[in-house]
Nucleic acid binder design. Structure first.
Length: 1124
RNA sequence: GGUCGUGUAGCUCAGUUGGUUAGAGCGCGUCGCUGAUAACGACGAGGUCCCAAGUUCGAAUCUUGGCACGACCA
């Protein structure tokens, strides 16, 4: 047998395991690379996942997409190396370790000891490594795991250092303040994610405070700006009041106080109502007029010494540094007064306002940040009245004092969401300024925007939508973290002068004059030789290294204590994965930028940004960058994957268990099923509902259907001993390779059906390649699916009798084999990147007969190319028309309740476009079999069956007649369709009267519609009507009986467990003359269908006990089948 | 509150540049086929294309507004 027999119900997960073994043992991935060595590179970057969490279904999607395109491109001839990577630093790792140790705060970590803590972090990173590697392999994601880059490795860290030094030296890395959410009791900052977890609804005081204006000359009464805040404790640190320039404000007179207040005009009434009095509007003006006016703040702790300080503006003028009214467009009239108190120390936007103010002044002349609160959340000596008190506890006292001093206009309770610490949920967080290191990304915003424009984003709206918007509102990157497990910030500071410098590598710092402290690492290593050498560039070891300060005689340089944001690590991956520039020059040059990356939407502000920012700053700057590189970099094409949801459409959650573990999916359905589900069910960027049911359906809908065609082929090829081994040079089994096979006839010489399916194959190949080149896996999968469907449901279905035919060497039969063989081998190659396992199994069995002359793996083949000469558009169109006719015939049968087994004398087909009629007539046989009719007639003169109507071709006539269209439509409805058609046929043109105008029409302007008339067994399609002859003659009925009989015999053969090739003897006992006649008339047919060598008819009286009772219609009979 | 996305059949989702019969799969119903057979096929029912207004001869598709959901950011 040329092919290994195929089990119809395949166990795909089991097959996949054996394919994995084959790949591993034969190093197929490595071979697929070697084979392309020297070819054009297709560069892929792996976005590093963190291995300290379990992989979940979302990671399967990412990895499935990441695998698809490199596999495809490799088959297309590109050289595509795939280096794995792991993201290993950051707070999540520390939190994991803290959990394990049962500790929380930084103090706890310090008490535990930074050194053992770091050791634990480094181990914890690999906690789920094995699971990740298993998942990666099981899914069929080909990536070089054993050469993975790891962000904590020394070479990686040193690469990062090099880049940071580069930025530092170009004044792109600086120290400043950052307002962060601060857990005062715990003494630590919280990440955005942590803050998000801790929101609670609380009531806070909402105070309306009078800020008297310094310059009262324009007013007849004492006048104050009415300012609003919900954090009274920040008032002692007030520096500005902000209004919106484009809001209208009013001076309103409060008769009870005999004072004026200034507030947003729209709020005068509502605030008056709250104080239960009417405020009299004296004048109104735009907010812009208030800008620059000075006021007296409610607390004078700073004001009394600094209130009169002025500074020099960059314009040359002089202005008071603080306690002025400034403009801010975040001020609204939604709540409050339209005037907002600004304490820049305690709010991010407020701090930005201060920064903007500072920028207006000459260096050193502007306002300094004021902060009367210590990091522990208690007031400092700067606010002596409250010194030592927890800020949130002073809200009441402050309100009371303001009231006593007549500065409080109104006090309310205000309900809102406020963040608390997720680890201590009674502790409210406060926004608080910390020293921090920043990357000056804003300086290169334009470059980043320009770079972004060159990237091909999928979906496209990311470019100018989410990502573009994010870049537009770029702020400097707050890089440093006051944590432990991360890439140490390579900045050393002079302990005497405070001056700093950046270091670009380990060697660099240890070879500095007077460098000491390296022995701390050496001792640790000596004590525990198991320690990873990479740890020496980490805390605490690196912190011990000091050297002589170049800035002050006798002083030492010490490293700053911070580590960096781990997003920087991952964003540095394009060069750091190679250790560039300390090593890996060639690799970096050859593999930058990437042709393709893909991650989920949440990476917009993560990896997508960090890569683009770092790359643009380092390599895109023509003023001082190391080298000018054309945009885009570091990636050209990026598929942004949608978020994955659980079974219930909710976010996937471990605790809700609303999703199946990937492993379970692999075991039950296999990796191919999961992959196909990801590729073929929706474009990858839509939110994907991860449903077991849908994954399961990939099997019958695609994989099994393809498998059934394959198993059908193998079954009959083995029976008929069809063996392609005669091909001299099988190669990749391209169409050309196949042509030297024994019994192979050129496609053009084969029957219509064969030519058609080969045409469909080539059309599909063209479409798949076009779509895959455009990163449209969904479209490509759709085309593939359609092809496999027609292959199975039309080609094989309609060709079955050829496979069953007796003569093994008949050209028609061989054509069928060669055609199906080509379809299957091409399909295996075509689907290989999508479903790498099942395609491998099919390929290997279909090529095993060549004894190693073909590639041992489908993944070592070239992607199949389209053979344009085999595409026949006319044939395609005609065949689909033929299929429509068949479908309509079946529909008509169904509505008349005439089962297909009952032969009918004929169908009449009426086409409104007769172009293809001649062709169709030649293919009556197909229709006859499919519809079980004896005759097929085409007619044009079909007035008795159908009525014609005409409708305008809107697309064509619309632009021409414009507004007249509705009337044209009406006129068409009223027109005599037959007459118009006749005129068109005669003269090639006709016309229609509309609104007194004659509109001339040609063939294209008119669509003819057919409708079946009542009283016929007919079905209508868009341009075709099929009418059944429903009259049943006795002959037809008897022919129907014979088909029933065949079915009974076949059933019985199966019950007897006969081989498909076994011959049989049949004995039938009946007293029905009709039945006897039916059998006699169709004896030859019955025998050939059932492989009977004899068929004997006897009377019931002669029946024996071993015969079984059956009935056809009302005719009873007995049946015996025996093996001949 | 801002930005972006989504809203189409019972469910999961397609729908190419606006063109008058809006599709697929699953599920459901009816039937068929019986040498691919623990498969397979056909046919059918099922839709105010979220709502409203606008542009247009014509809107699921374009514009604006609203509603709902989701994500990100405040």
């Amino acid at each position: 047998m040329p092919f290994k027999p195929v089990q119809p119900g395949a166990d795909f997960p089991k097959l996949e395991e054996s394919v994995l073994d084959f790949w591993r043992e034969n190093r197929i991935y490595e071979q697929s690379l070697q084979q392309r060595d020297g070819q054009t590179r297709y560069v892929f970057f792996e976005g590093p996942p963190t291995a300290n969490g379990k992989p979940h279904p979302g990671h399967c999607l990412t990895r499935a997409i990441k695998d698809l395109f490199p596999r495809y491109k490799t088959m297309r001839g590109f050289f595509c190396e795939r280096k794995a990577g792991w993201d290993t630093h950051g707070l999540p790792v520390e939190v994991e370790v803290c959990k394990e140790l049962g500790i929380h705060s930084k103090e706890d970590i310090e008490a535990f000891g930074v050194e053992p803590f770091i050791h634990k972090c480094q181990q914890s990173v690999w906690q789920y490594m094995q699971q990740w590697e298993q998942l990666t392999e099981r899914l069929g994601f080909w990536v070089k795991l054993d050469e993975a880059y790891v962000t904590y490795h020394q070479s990686y860290v040193e690469s990062v250092w090099w880049s940071l030094k580069n930025l530092y030296d170009r004044d792109l890395l600086y120290e400043g303040h950052k307002i962060i959410w601060w857990w005062a009791q715990g003494g630590t900052a919280l990440s955005a994610g942590e803050v998000g977890q801790g929101y609670k609804t609380v009531k806070d005081p909402s105070v309306f405070v009078l800020f008297p204006l310094v310059d009262q000359t324009d007013f007849d009464k004492p006048t104050s700006l009415l300012v609003w805040t919900t954090t009274p404790w920040t008032l002692p640190s007030n520096q500005f009041a902000a209004v919106n320039e484009s809001i209208e404000y009013a001076v309103a007179y409060d008769a009870e106080l005999d004072q004026n207040v200034i507030l947003a005009k729209d709020l005068v009434e509502s605030i008056g109502a709250k104080r239960k009095r009417e405020l009299e509007v004296k004048s109104t003006f735009m907010g812009g007029e208030l800008i620059g006016k000075r006021y007296v703040p409610p607390f004078d702790y700073y004001y009394k010494t600094q209130g009169d300080l002025t500074g020099k503006l960059k314009t040359g003028q002089t202005q008071h540094r603080a306690w002025r009214i400034t403009a801010a467009d975040f001020v609204t009239t939604d709540s409050g007064t339209g005037a907002v108190h600004e304490a820049p120390a305690f709010g991010e936007v407020d701090y930005q306002l201060l920064a903007d103010e500072q920028a207006r002044f000459e260096t050193g002349e502007g306002p300094e940040l004021i902060c009367a609160v210590a990091p522990n959340g208690k007031f400092t000596e700067q606010a002596p009245d409250y010194e030592g008190q927890w800020v949130k506890d002073t809200d009441k006292a402050i309100s009371r004092r303001l009231k006593d001093e007549g500065k409080l206009y109104l006090l309310e309770q205000y309900e809102h969401e406020y963040p608390f610490c997720w680890r201590a949920d009674d502790d409210p967080l406060i926004q608080y300024p910390r020293r921090s290191w920043f990357i000056r990304t804003t300086r290169h915003k334009d470059n980043m925007l320009a770079n972004n424009q060159q990237i091909n984003w999928l979906p496209e709206h990311i470019k100018d939508g989410r990502f573009g918007n994010f870049l537009e509102s770029n702020v400097d990157w707050a890089l440093s973290r006051e944590r432990y497990w991360g890439t140490p910030l390579p900045i050393w500071r002079c302990e005497e002068t405070g001056r700093t410098e950046a270091i670009g590598g380990y060697e660099e710092v240890t070879s500095k004059p007077g460098a000491t402290g390296m022995e701390v690492w050496e001792q640790a290593k000596a004590a525990d030789p198991e320690l990873a050498d990479d740890l020496k560039v980490h805390k605490p070891y690196i912190d011990h290294i000091t050297y002589d300060s170049p800035f002050a005689e006798g002083a030492k340089m010490k490293r700053v204590t911070e580590v960096i944001d781990c997003w920087y690590d991952s964003g540095a991956m394009p060069f750091a994965q190679w250790g560039y520039p300390h090593k890996g020059h060639e690799e970096f040059k050859a593999q930058f930028p990437a042709d393709f990356i893909s991650e989920a939407l949440d990476q917009t502000r993560g990896w997508f940004y960090s890569q683009l920012a770092i790359s643009t700053l380092l390599f895109g700057d023509d003023q001082g960058g190391t080298e000018k590189v054309e945009f885009p970099h570091p990636f050209r094409n990026c598929i942004v994957l949608g978020l994955m949801l659980g079974e219930d459409g909710q976010k996937m959650s471990k605790s809700k268990r609303n999703y199946r573990e990937p492993r379970e999916i692999f075991d039950k359905y296999g990796a191919d099923a999961l992959r196909w589900y990801f590729y073929a069910n929706q474009p990858p960027w839509t939110a994907i509902r991860y449903r077991e049911q849908t994954i399961k359906e990939s099997i019958p809908e695609f994989i099994l259907r393809m498998w059934n065609v394959y198993s059908f082929f193998v079954l009959y090829a083995n029976i008929d001993e069809f063996d392609p081994a005669s091909i001299a040079d099988p190669g990749d089994l391209t169409a050309e390779n196949l042509s030297s096979g024994e019994g192979y006839r050129p496609i053009a010489e084969r029957g219509e059906l064969d030519r058609w399916i080969i045409s469909e194959l080539n059309r599909t190949l063209a479409s798949v390649v076009e779509k895959m080149d455009a990163y449209d896996n969904f479209g490509a999968a759709g085309a593939i699916n359609q092809f496999v469907d027609v292959l199975s449901n039309w080609y094989v279905r309609r060709s079955r009798d050829r496979f069953w035919a007796g003569d093994k060497q008949s050209p028609e039969k061989l054509d069928a084999y060669w055609t199906l063989y080509e379809c299957l081998t091409s399909t295996a190659k075509m689907v290989a990147p999508f479903v790498p396992f099942v395609s491998e199994v099919i390929w290997q069995n279909l090529t095993s007969t060549f004894g190693g002359k073909t590639p041992s793996s489908v993944h070592l083949c070239d992607y199949p190319l389209t053979n344009d000469s085999h595409i026949d558009g006319d044939l395609s169109r005609r065949m689909s028309l033929l299929r429509e006719i068949a479908s309509l015939g079946l529909s008509a049968r169904a509505s008349e309740k005439l089962k297909v087994r009952q032969p009918l004398s004929g169908v009449t087909v009426i086409l409104n476009d007769t172009t293809d009629q001649a062709w169709l007539t030649e293919h009556d046989e197909l229709l006859k079999t499919e519809l079980n009719v004896q005759d097929v007639t085409y007619t044009t003169d079909a007035g008795q069956y159908v009525s014609y109507s005409v409708v305008p071709n809107f697309k064509r006539l619309g632009p021409r007649v414009g507004k007249l269209m509705p009337q044209v439509k009406k006129a068409f409805g009223a027109a005599d369709a037959a007459a118009m058609m006749a005129e068109l046929a005669d003269a090639g043109a006709t016309s229609i009267e509309v609104a007194g105008e004659s509109i001339s029409l040609d063939n294209e302007d008119i669509e003819v519609r057919l409708a079946a008339k009542e009283g016929w067994a007919a079905a209508q399609g868009t341009g075709v009507v099929v009418v059944l002859a429903t009259e049943l003659t006795p002959e037809l009925i008897r022919a129907g009986y014979s088909r029933d009989l065949v079915r009974f015999i076949q059933d019985h053969r199966k019950e007897l467990d006969l081989e498909r090739t076994d011959r049989i003897n049949i004995v039938i006992a009946t007293d029905s003359d009709d039945l006897k006649q039916a059998i006699e008339e169709n004896k030859e047919y019955v025998c050939s269908e059932t492989l009977a060598v004899s068929l004997e008819i006897v009377s019931m009286a002669k029946a024996t006990n071993d015969m079984i009772d059956k009935e056809i219609g009302e005719h009873a009979f007995k049946l015996r089948v025996t093996k001949a």
